[in-house]
Write a protein that binds this DNA or RNA. Structure first.
Length: 299
DNA sequence: GATCTATGTAGAT
DNA sequence: TCTACCTAGATCG
């Protein structure tokens, strides 16, 4: 269930664990067995994240002939790179660990060719929303449809700004739109809006350019920190419960946040209860006092 | 043991 | 706006 920062961490973990080596690719659950067979034994050359999308590239150059019609990537022929495209969706998990027996519904297992006990790694994929093989061209098409990823150095926030500036949709909805900002999920959108005192229902076309610049810069900082630590911490030191004379909290998702999943609890800044509603089918949390409607309007 | 929930998205209505 | 999908852990009775 991760947001973009964890997908980037995952890409790094997979690259560190397997890049440059031939790997075993299997589908213990069976639902990916035919495709797994196409890349089993090939060299994993690297993994890359783009928003919440994960791409794992295999060098299929040394693979034997693959059965006709076994997959789109196979039609490229022997020798073409083959890309495993994964999107975890809401409930998927992809964990890199030391070798261990399969437990539960493992869609894909990637393992070192040398699986002697105590050596190597195993990566288990469970419950993905997307798990398929792509060609290089198909991967490019997926990326073309995505907006600016705050964790990528090559991200272009101008693309996101143009889409926001032209839209009558709420900024809360736009930040979650992967065609606008890729990798931002429910926690980061709720938290960054709070940190900038922005009302979630502010229309994109009414967002000031300087406020967008601040939002984008903050997303980059927050998500880079999340990439480093593996958790989402958004509370400024002066607002930490201890600094405010309150007992420390433990959030279920593992970080310190202002509003996410804190409905009814006192706002860490003003003390009024945090509000929650549903927007586009997702839970939206905010403080009606700290995020008033007028803030952010175009002048 | 049954039910609920979830850091997401696509497709139908 | 709704429903379906994928899985596991938390919560309920």
């Amino acid at each position: 269930m991760p947001e973009g920062h964890l997908i980037h961490r995952l890409a790094e973990s997979l690259t560190d664990a397997f890049a440059g080596h031939p790997v075993r690719v299997t589908s213990p659950q069976g639902r990916f067995a035919a495709s797994a067979a196409l890349i089993d034994g090939s060299v994993l050359t690297g993994a890359e994240a783009w928003g919440k999308h994960l791409f794992i590239t295999f060098d299929a150059g040394q693979l034997p002939d693959v059965p006709a019609g076994a997959g789109q990537a196979a039609s490229e022929g022997v020798g073409a790179p083959c890309i495993l495209h994964v999107h975890l969706g809401l409930i998927g998990r992809f964990q890199v660990a030391e070798p261990h027996p399969v437990v539960g519904q493992v869609r894909v297992r990637i393992a070192d060719s040398d699986t002697r006990a105590g050596t190597g790694h195993v990566a288990d994929l469970r419950g993905p929303q997307t798990c398929r093989l792509l060609t290089v061209e198909e991967k490019a098409q997926v990326i073309d449809a995505l907006g600016a990823d705050p964790l990528r150095a090559d991200a272009d926030p101008e693309v996101a700004w143009r889409r926001i500036h032209a839209s009558s949709r709420s900024i809360a909805s736009l930040l979650m739109d992967q065609r606008v900002t890729a990798g931002v999920g429910d926690i980061y959108r709720c938290e960054v809006l709070f940190r900038h005192h922005l009302n979630p229902l502010l229309e994109g076309r009414n967002l000031r350019r300087d406020v967008w610049n601040e939002l984008w810069a903050d997303l980059r900082v927050l998500m880079a920190a999340g990439f480093e630590t593996g958790r989402i911490d958004t509370v400024r030191p002066e607002h930490m419960p201890e600094a405010m004379g309150r007992p420390p909290r433990v959030d279920r998702h593992g970080g310190e946040v202002y509003v996410y999943r804190r409905a009814g609890d006192p706002c860490l800044v003003c003390g009024r209860p945090v509000s929650m509603t549903t927007l586009d089918g997702r839970n939206l949390y905010w403080c009606t006092h700290c995020q008033p409607r007028r803030r952010g309007r175009a002048s």
